[in-house]
Nucleic acid binder design. Structure first.
Length: 406
DNA sequence: GGGTAATTTCCTGTTT
DNA sequence: AAAACAGGAAATTACC
C-alpha cells in the first residue's frame, strides 16, 4: 500500500468546544441547507454547526440502496446515521465503531472497542489523533481519519425536508461511504508504517454477499449480515434528539423512543425521574417509566431478534473456534473441561448484539443470557478450585456440543 | 391459540 | 468504589 505523507496537517482536534445552547435540533423547515464541509473542521464555528440537524442522505447511494433495499425498506436504520456525530450517545459511538469494523473487515479481535464505551459523540469530536490512538493503538488512526471525514463531509438537512410519507423511503438510507472507508484504505494518508501494514493485513475477507445477502464470517460459519443493519425503528421514525432528551429510559435507543409526533413533546418534557424501586411484583408496575407509546413494556425480544437456530452458546462456541478472535476476544482457560473466559466482554456483547440486530446489547445482558443458558445446561458452573479467574469465566455444559472437536 | 424455548430487559442485592 | 455476579420477574418471538 502506498503510504504518503500528509499533504495537509490534520487539525489538532476536530472542532473547538461547541456551545450546546446554540445548537438547535428542531429547527423550523425554512432552515437553509448547508454543507458541513463548507466549514473546515478545526475552524468551524457554532453558526456553521447549528443548522445541521439531519443528514442529507438523498444523494449518490443508488448502488447501496439497491444492495440493501429490502433490509432498509422493511426494517430500519441505525440511529447514529440520523444525527450529527456530535450528538451521538455512547451507545451510538460504539455502534459506529463496530459497524465500521464489520464494513471494513477490521479484525475485531484486535479492535479495542470497549475503550470507546463511555465516549459520546461530543467527546469524540474533541479527541485528537493521539487520543484515538490511545484508545486503540491499532485502529485509532484509522478511526480518527474516518471520523474526521464524517465530520467534514456529512451533509445535513433539516428534518422537515424528508417526507416520511414519501414513497422514496430509500432517501433515509445512510451514506455508506461516509461510514465505511470510501475507496481504499490507501486513501488515508498514513505516515506510520506499522499502521499501514496493520490496515493491509486486516482486509481479509470476512464479509461476503451470498445470494444477494451480506454475510459475515465468524469461525468459518456464515452469519447473515443484513440482520446487522436492522434497527427496531418505525419507518416513520426519524427521531433525532439531543443527548439531554435521552434520559427517559437509557436502554432504548433514541430512535426507538421518539416518533416524529412525540419528539417535540418529549423534548419539552421534564426528564422523568426514575422510580426509586421497580422491583414490584405486581403484574403491571414493572415497566413503569419505560413504556413505549402503545403502553407496552420495552422488555422482551424485539422483532428481528429471534434466535433463528443460532443460539448464544453456539455463537460463543464459534467465536472460540475462530483463531482471529481467540484469544483476543475470548479464550480457553481449560479447553479439556470447557472453561473459557471473556477477554473483551463488551466487544463480544457488541458482536452478539450485531448478530441479533440489537445495538443495545451489553455484557450485562449477555451475561444474564449466559446464566439462563447455564440453568438450561448449555453452560455449567466453573469449578471453584482457585484454578480459574473468578470473573468473566464460563464453562460449556452437557447440552453444548462441538466446542471440543477440532 | 396454547405451551415452551430462548432469549432480552430491568431490577435489587451480593461478591470480588 | 467499581465491575461482575446472581437470579427474580416480565416480556417477546419462533416454533411445535
Amino acid at each position: 500500500m502506498a503510504v504518503s505523507c500528509p499533504t495537509q496537517a490534520l487539525p489538532e482536534t476536530f472542532a473547538p468546544e461547541f456551545d450546546m445552547d446554540n445548537i438547535s435540533l428542531y429547527e423550523p423547515c425554512d432552515i437553509k441547507l448547508e454543507k458541513v464541509s463548507d466549514c473546515a473542521m478545526g475552524e468551524s464555528d457554532v453558526s456553521c454547526i447549528s443548522n445541521k440537524t439531519f443528514m442529507d442522505l438523498t444523494d449518490s447511494f443508488d448502488g447501496f440502496k439497491q444492495e440493501y433495499a429490502c433490509p432498509f425498506e422493511e426494517k430500519n436504520m441505525k440511529s447514529w446515521t440520523e444525527k450529527h456525530p456530535e450528538h451521538w450517545n455512547n451507545n451510538e459511538v460504539l455502534d459506529w465503531i463496530y459497524f465500521v469494523a464489520a464494513e471494513n473487515h477490521l479484525d475485531v479481535a484486535r479492535l479495542r472497542g470497549e475503550n470507546f464505551q463511555t465516549i459520546t459523540g461530543q467527546k469524540l469530536c474533541q479527541m485528537t489523533q493521539q487520543d484515538f490512538i490511545e484508545k486503540d493503538q491499532e485502529y485509532g488512526f484509522y478511526y480518527f481519519e474516518l471520523f474526521r471525514q464524517i465530520f467534514n463531509e456529512a451533509k445535513f438537512t433539516p428534518p422537515a425536508s424528508v417526507d416520511p410519507t414519501s414513497s422514496d423511503s430509500s432517501s433515509l438510507n445512510f451514506p455508506r461511504e461516509l461510514f465505511s472507508y470510501p475507496q481504499t484504505i490507501a486513501d488515508i494518508e498514513v505516515n506510520d508504517a506499522q499502521t499501514s501494514e496493520m490496515l493491509d493485513n486486516n482486509l481479509d475477507t470476512m464479509l461476503e454477499i451470498q445470494d444477494g445477502v451480506p454475510k459475515v464470517n465468524i469461525a468459518g460459519a456464515w452469519y447473515d449480515f443484513d440482520d446487522d443493519m436492522d434497527i427496531q425503528m418505525d419507518r416513520t421514525d426519524q427521531g433525532y434528539i439531543s443527548g439531554e432528551a435521552e434520559s427517559e429510559c437509557d436502554s432504548r435507543l433514541p430512535s426507538q423512543l421518539f416518533s416524529d409526533e412525540e419528539a417535540e413533546v418529549v423534548v419539552k418534557k421534564e426528564p422523568k425521574k426514575k422510580t426509586p424501586s421497580r422491583r414490584s411484583h405486581g403484574s403491571t408496575s414493572s415497566s413503569e417509566g419505560c413504556e413505549s407509546e402503545d403502553g407496552k413494556s420495552n422488555r422482551g425480544r424485539k422483532h428481528g431478534q429471534c434466535s433463528k437456530g443460532n443460539h448464544l452458546w453456539e455463537f460463543i462456541r464459534d467465536l472460540l473456534k475462530d483463531p482471529q478472535l481467540n484469544p483476543s476476544l475470548l479464550k480457553w482457560e481449560d479447553k479439556e473441561s470447557g472453561v473459557f473466559r471473556f477477554v473483551q466482554s463488551e466487544a463480544v456483547a457488541q458482536m452478539w448484539g450485531r448478530k441479533k440486530s440489537n445495538p443495545g446489547m451489553t455484557y450485562e445482558k449477555l451475561s444474564r443470557a449466559m446464566r439462563f443458558c447455564r440453568s438450561a445446561s448449555y453452560f455449567a458452573g466453573v469449578p471453584k478450585n482457585g484454578k480459574f479467574p473468578k470473573k468473566l469465566c464460563f464453562r460449556f455444559g452437557p447440552k453444548a456440543f462441538g466446542w471440543k472437536a477440532e
